[in-house]
Structure formats: C-alpha cells, structure tokens
Design a protein around this nucleic acid. Structure first.
Lengths: 337, 337
DNA sequence: AGGTACAGTGCAAACGTTTTCACTGACAAA
DNA sequence: TTTGTCAGTGAAAACGTTTGCACTGTACCT
C-alpha cells in the first residue's frame, strides 16, 4: 500500500554502501569494482528499481520531454501529424506531453505556461485559429526553449517551420486535369485570408497559364464545405457553358460536388472530373473513390519532430532558422480519367 | 542565451528576503505581511516567474500527470477517446503524457516503464493486440499507481474498466432491422476470440430469438473488412434465398457490402438494408450514407479519465473496482428503411 | 515590570539523483 | 623507508521547491 518506489538510497542502505556507489554502479561507471557493481545491479533488478525521472531531470536540468499543442485530436490531419511525431520521439528517446487548444487562444496560452513550467526541452505546435498575438510563444523563445511550428505557422516569430507545399500540390492536380483533357476547370476555395488558400489558388492559376488556358472568373468560387458545394456545383453544371472538371480545396467540398454531379446524372469521370485536397478517410469511402492531393500528416509530424530534436541537440550553436516544405502527392482514383 | 528560468532563489536574492518568504508569498500564505507579499508577487509577475513543476512534483511526490498508452493515433475511435480524455484532464488540472504501442508488446512494456519512471499518478490504456501476459501492468499496481483500461481491457488484472456496450448496440440494431420489416438478416463478424465479436454476436442472436426468428447459420459469416466483404456479400445476394438485410461488425465491412449491393443494382434500402458499427468518417462519406451503431469514443475517453481521477483522489480508500459501460446509439441514415 | 501572544521572518531538512572532491589502503618504484 | 600511483569508495553539494521549527520584536494584559 506504500507508494513504494524503491530508491537509490534504499539500495545503498540494504547493501551497506554509499549512494554514490549505487549511482555509479547503476550507471555502469568504469571506476567501480566488478564485485560491488554486479551486486548492486543484481539487487536493483530484483527489486524492480526504476530511476526517478523527475529527480534526474532536475539534476541534469533537461527533461527529455517534448511538448505538443494541437488544436484538435479527432481530425485526420492532426492525428496523422501526431502519429508521425511519435515515430521520431520514440526513436530519439523523448517523451511527449500532449496539449490541445480547441482553437482557443486562452487554452493555447495556458498550455504554453504549463509547458514552460514542466521544463520541456522543446515545443511543437500548430497555432489556434483564434490566436492573433504571440507573446506566449515569444516567452518560449525567451526561455530558450526551441519551438517548431507546423502547418499553421506563426509568422511574427522567427522560428522553424514545417508546412505543406500547397502551391505545388494544386499545380500538379490542375495540370493532371488539363493533361487528361479538361479545359474548363472550376476551382472551389476557402476565403483568401488563409495562407493555404492563397497558395493553392496560385498553383491552380499558374497551371492554367502554363498551358495557355485563360482564367474564367466565373469558374472560381469561394466555397469550402460539403453543404454549400452542392447548390453551387449544381448551378454551374446546369449552365450552358458548364465546367468539365472541379478542383476543390478539400475533400469534403469535393464530395459535395460529387454528390451534385451524380444527382444530375453526369458520367464521372467521362463527362466530369473531380479532384479534392487532403486524402482523408472520406476520399476512400466515397463512391466513386475520390482523386485527391494527398498531404502526409505523418511526414509533417516526423519532419517537425526531427527539426526540433536537431535544434535541441545543437542548442548552443548559431540559431539558424530552418524551414521544411512537405511535398504533396496526387492520388488518382476514380473521379478523374 | 542563458537557460534563464527565474527561480524562487533569484527572487529571494533580489529582494533580500529568504526563499521561504518568497515561497509563502507566491502561495499566498496567510502568515505573511501584506507589504512583503505584494512586493514578491509583483516582482515575480514582472520577471515571468514560473514554478518549476519538476521540483514541485518531487517535493510533493505527486506529478499531476497522467500517462496514456494507445495502440494507434490515426484511428477514428482512439483519437476520439484521446479527445475525450483531454476534456477531463484539462478540467481537472492534469497533464497528459502520451505513448503509443503500435500494438507491439515490447513497446507497451517500455511505455509502462517510462510511465513509472516519470512518476505519473495514473495510467489509462487499451492493450496492444500482441499482448498476452501482463506483468508490466501488474508492476503498475504494485507501485500503487491507479490504472484504468478502456476498450481492450486486461482481464487478468483486477482493475477499473471502461467498455462499449457491444451487446446492447448489436441488439438494438438488429431489432431495428426487424421492426422495419427485414427477416433474413445476415451478420458479418470478426473471429470469435475477440470479446467484442462475441458480444455483438450475442446481441444479434438474442434480437432474433426475441422476435421469434430462427437462426440461419448460412447468414452468419466470419468476415470483417471491406475487401473480403465484397465477394462474400455478392455470393449471398445471388443465392435464391437471399438476405434482405446485412448487419456488419464495423463500418468498413458494411461499406464492402454496400459496394456489392449497388453493383448488383439492388435498391437500397427498399430491397436491401445495411447497418454498420462504429460511426467513423466513412459512414457519412458513403453514398447512400450508412446506418450504423455509433460508439462514442469521446464518452469512453471522458469516462475513463473521470474514473481514473476519482481513483487518484481516493487513493487511500478501499480499492473498490468500478466498471463503466458506455451506451451505443443507433444512427439511422440512408441504408435502412 | 513581567508575562503572554502573536505577527513576521529565516534556517534547514527533505524529495532522488549526479558528480566533484577527498580519503583510504595497497602496491610499486625509488 | 619514503614517495608516488591508483583503484575503490564515501561525503557533501547541488538542482528548486515546501514546510516544521525556531527566533525576533512588538503589543497587549495583568
């Protein structure tokens, strides 16, 4: 019933040696006689001795723990990122302290405070939607704790970043549609204040101009969810100058378009091609299965963690800022030719 | 550049008082003069003093941290569970140390060791598929660390558990199919060594007998994934004594059945009803959308965390074992009448 | 004046480690 | 014998806190 964690002291007392000796034996220090060392190690093993990480961290002033703050966990992209981070953390011997902001500024701020208090040796985060000022992150920097932002980065703080190559992904997808014979390609995107939106739109536009297709403003819609996509796509499909392809900023929107297209009995992909962005679960579950731009959350997570670990290892060095851009991959399924 | 975490000592030195005074001031102790107290608090605030949680945990011998081990993170159910756990952890003031077993026994074992070393005050876990013996969990119990198992529980260890009510969920779903006019209901399930499989099958069988429908062995198949479901369902649908409904042990299998049914041009739900189990992303993305038994991962996570916190708070008390069964909810969509 | 009460404060131990320094004894070299 | 070397070990400080105890001084009561 005792909170019986056996300590180095207990071993010392039991074996009638000093704590220093026990410590050295357990760390396999070279300046210790074979006999004593073995005796201590044996005793420790038998009694399931476990070093107290708290005491250790305190002594060494580094905790081998990394803090992660995500806006949400039930979310295909973020859970993938988390999974990728765990891959690297495990390999590199770091533990992970998890926080979730729910896109609330206040919670994010509180999480950062907790992380500093917890003496984490690094932080990975994707900022909350609500967040517009960044003193709390600056505090991390002031405390000399390395930070890597991923996906939703913080532009105001000089920091390491890992982002998706939205531009190239959109460019490749649009080019693929063009190459498979589409020339009137509609584009459904989010409001342009979001960075990803701008970049994906840029890729779309550049692909058109690269292939000598002029931009038709009527083909570009601000519309980024399932429900809105249905009426918007329906109207476009019924116009006489209808598009022959749709490219959507995310999979949900693409599914809305798919729904509308099927409803009007257009043949997919013979008459209408559709391409999404993300490659979440939905892309495979839909019928026909959705062609989409795959963004590997796991790669983002892995890269972010790798970058962070590198920063931690070379903490004394020049504070060089490194960014990493994760490639996307076009995943061709049944909604394109 | 210094690892400049300001400490209680620094404050004491700067203000020319003792560390005890500072400590008391920061903890708003009643036996301290107003003036000094305010002065200290003000100084601490200005210099962004943050208590060192490591030192605190060591002193108090409790870390306010809870360890969580999940088999996987990119997984609708487990990420939901995690989200639910965070809800409660946040509310109750606990931090979460996250581990992932990848269904490997070895990793699970290692995670447990880390958790003990980290002095967590409780552990939540769903055991790895590989795991068949439980010494590592027993060690937690021996160390007097409360454990709550969720979903994949550990039968050999007397412990608190949170599970899904598979039996009732399957019973309700089957009854719904019967009430909407189906009498030849096929059942696709996992191998019967899994607990959930047994329970869901039990619910199915009891629903039939409750409504006076005799069991047809040919309608029960061991088949629990998308790819296998397609040929199996196809064959059943082509037999002369075909089923008029399918109930599958998970959503993926149900989608395979859906695929086969559509391919053979049966009308859904007029001719064939289909029901899944889980209510993941896929259920909404499919066309038609899938009727399924919803199991709330978030509720599981919340309940598990609540149970654990209760255990931690009443650690001295009688070690009463509490189990919690999470209700499922039938979510009727388009694949049933 | 003598005593009590108490507010305000500091000292030091403790939590479990690591690590520097110093000590002991044995043995070899002079 | 004296000196030096070295292997083996222990004492103690330190990491940042909290807290029981002891000390000071002032104010109040007889």
């Amino acid at each position: 019933m005792s909170n019986s964690q056996i300590t180095i002291k207990d071993i010392a007392k039991a074996l009638n040696v000093s704590v220093s000796t026990v410590s050295r034996a357990l760390n396999d220090s070279p300046d210790l006689s074979g006999a004593t060392k073995l005796q201590v190690q044996e005793y420790a093993r038998q009694h399931h001795y476990k070093p107290n990480l708290l005491a250790l961290s305190m002594k060494k002033r580094e905790s081998k723990t990394i803090g992660v703050i995500v806006p949400q966990i039930i979310h295909h992209f973020f859970s993938s990122v988390l999974e990728g981070m765990m891959d690297v953390a495990e390999r590199e011997g770091f533990n992970v302290l998890l926080f979730r902001s729910r896109d609330s500024f206040e919670k994010e701020q509180h999480s950062v405070q907790q992380l500093i208090s917890s003496q984490v040796c690094g932080v990975l985060t994707s900022i909350a939607k609500e967040t517009t000022h960044y003193e709390h992150f600056q505090e991390l920097v002031d405390h000399n704790i390395p930070v890597v932002f991923f996906d939703r980065i913080c532009v105001d703080i000089p920091s390491n970043r890992v982002v998706i190559d939205d531009y190239a992904g959109a460019l490749a997808a649009t080019e693929y549609l063009i190459k498979t014979g589409c020339h009137r390609i509609a584009f459904f995107c989010s409001p342009l204040n979001l960075e990803i939106s701008k970049n994906r739109r840029g890729g779309y536009l550049d692909a058109l101009s690269k292939h000598g297709i002029s931009v038709d403003k009527d083909l570009i819609k601000i519309c980024d969810n399932y429900d809105e996509a249905i009426p918007v796509a329906t109207e476009m499909l019924q116009s006489e100058n209808r598009p022959d392809a749709f490219f959507a900023v995310n999979d949900e929107t693409a599914l809305g378009i798919l729904h509308a297209t099927k409803h009007l009995h257009f043949k997919i992909p013979e008459e209408i091609s559709i391409c999404g962005f993300t490659d979440g679960f939905a892309a495979i579950a839909s019928d026909p299965q959705l062609t989409t731009v795959g963004q590997s959350g796991q790669d983002v997570g892995r890269s972010a963690m790798e970058l962070l670990v590198e920063k931690i290892r070379h903490k004394g060095d020049q504070p060089l800022i490194k960014n990493k851009i994760i490639k996307t991959k076009l995943i061709v399924r049944e909604t394109t030719r």
